[in-house]
């Protein structure tokens, strides 16, 4: 299981991607991340909620109470229009970053 610092720096992007697709709640996201990465990366709940807090404060995502689970109402997260713009910006930036890092990280002969 990978839990490197490199991924840590991109948790925001991972979560934004998931709620860009549709509104989701916390546990759904952590399950979805494990599923898509074939369990190679599992997000810690603690990190997940730290990211929610941070993004919500910045106005990139917002939350609302929705569908009922057995323990009460679930809190769903959705991306704001600011968030969408921010995420697109991030994707473009990542493309550039990848190119730069690739220059130096080619497999050695």
């Amino acid at each position: 299981m990978i839990s490197s610092d490199i991924i840590r720096g991109h948790l925001d992007a991972i979560i934004l991607r998931l709620i860009y697709e549709k509104d989701r709640y916390g546990y759904e996201m952590s399950k979805e991340i494990s599923r898509r990465t074939d369990n190679q990366f599992q997000i810690k709940e603690a990190s997940l909620y730290a990211v929610f807090q941070r993004l919500e404060k910045k106005g990139i995502i917002e939350s609302y109470l929705g569908g009922v689970s057995y323990g009460g109402k679930r809190r769903y997260y959705r991306i704001t229009s600011l968030g969408k713009a921010y995420f697109k910006e991030q994707i473009a930036e990542w493309e550039e970053t990848k190119k730069i890092i690739d220059i130096f990280m080619e497999v050695l002969e």
Partner: peptide, 17 residues
Amino acid sequence: ENIVKDIKQNLEEKVLD
């Protein structure tokens, strides 16, 4: 309060899962 409640719910769901 909100975050604690959410985390409990999240973990309980995980346990059931």
